[in-house]
């Protein structure tokens, strides 16, 4: 009786979102956390409050291997869970089908031991489902949960199994940046296609840097080549829930709005007062972003905003 949770890793390091999924999973039972990757990440994971045990696997396999690994450990757990990240989305449905379980994914609220809320139709509706199955396969939207505290010292147990997989890893093409992680950032500055060029996007990045913010982009801005694909916020990109979202030159297509509905406060800078994003914003400034952004960045630096 308990939860087997797959930890989220990023380039071999424990991702900040793991503390959030642990907090979600801990509402359902004691959490055994599977960390496939370096030992240092497993030791870091042991410090998260709510973790009963860390199961450390030396390898971080692709989806087929990871599903096999989880299936091998599944016995004795009533819940097998992960973050609704690209890894969790890749592996958990495969695991569920292997175990003949209908999964419940992208959970944004837990309403009981087997009652969950998840968004559908790009977040334009919320579905409340009850899962009467014996075993549950779940993924949690990390940004919808507050992170668990640290200070724990859970035992770490290292697995000694070979993982069979048909798919093989060839290469990673990572976006190198020193800016905060989009999925867990407190402040996000997002740019739309109105910034006009990759050069124009630098204005968005400058404001973000001043605020210590992560940078997001709309699908149109990514498709136009102004920003890398992993900055995309929306139904098909990342779903964010920062305390503050500053949307620059973003009209607010349904697809993008789906990604920002969890933001506590939304500020819009746009020339069009009728843009859907301006209408849902808490604060709006109507005007030309090319004039506003440099002034705003300078003004904030002058007022000594420091993070």
């Amino acid at each position: 009786m308990g939860v087997l949770l797959l930890a989220e890793l990023d380039d071999g390091a424990l991702s900040a979102s793991t503390a959030r999924t642990v907090a979600a999973a801990a509402q359902l039972g004691p959490v055994d956390l599977l960390v496939p990757g370096p030992r240092a990440a497993a030791d870091q994971a042991a410090a998260i409050a709510g973790v009963a045990k860390v199961i450390h696997a030396k390898e971080a396999p692709l989806a087929d291997g990871l599903a096999n690994l989880l299936a091998g450990l599944a016995d004795g757990y009533t819940i097998i869970a992960a973050a609704a990240s690209t890894t969790g989305k890749d592996v958990m449905p495969r695991l569920a089908a292997k175990l003949d379980i209908q999964p419940v994914t992208d959970i944004v609220a837990i309403e009981g031991a087997n009652r969950f809320v998840r968004p559908i139709y790009a977040g334009n509706a919320l579905e409340t489902v009850t899962d009467p199955q014996q075993t549950h396969v779940l993924t949690f939207r990390a940004s919808a949960f507050r992170p668990a505290a640290s200070g724990n010292a859970a035992p770490v147990e290292t697995l000694d199994t070979d993982i069979a997989a048909a798919a093989r890893f060839i290469a990673a093409h990572r976006t190198q940046s020193d800016i905060p992680d989009l999925a867990t950032a407190q402040i996000v500055v997002g740019g739309g296609v109105s910034v006009g060029s990759a050069e124009g996007f630098k204005l968005v990045e400058a404001l973000g840097k001043t605020l210590g913010a992560a940078i997001g982009a709309t699908r149109a801005a990514v498709d136009a080549g102004y920003a890398p694909n992993d900055w995309q916020v929306g139904q098909t990109g990342k779903i964010i829930a920062p305390d503050l979202y500053i949307a620059v030159g973003i009209s607010g297509a349904l697809q993008h709005l789906a990604g920002i509905q969890g933001a506590k406060k939304i500020i819009a800078i746009n020339t069009d007062p009728e843009a859907p994003l301006v209408k849902i914003a808490d604060v709006a400034l109507i005007g030309d972003l090319f004039e506003i952004l440099p002034q705003l960045t300078a003004e904030l630096e002058k007022s000594g905003v420091k993070r």
């Binding site: 919320l126 808490d282 400034l285």
Partner: peptide
Amino acid sequence: RLTVEMVSPPPERAAGVTVNSVAELA
């Protein structure tokens, strides 16, 4: 396998304000 109990619209956001200057926004 699952029972859909309910489908509801997402919570509405409260109406916002428009500011007139960069200084105000900053």
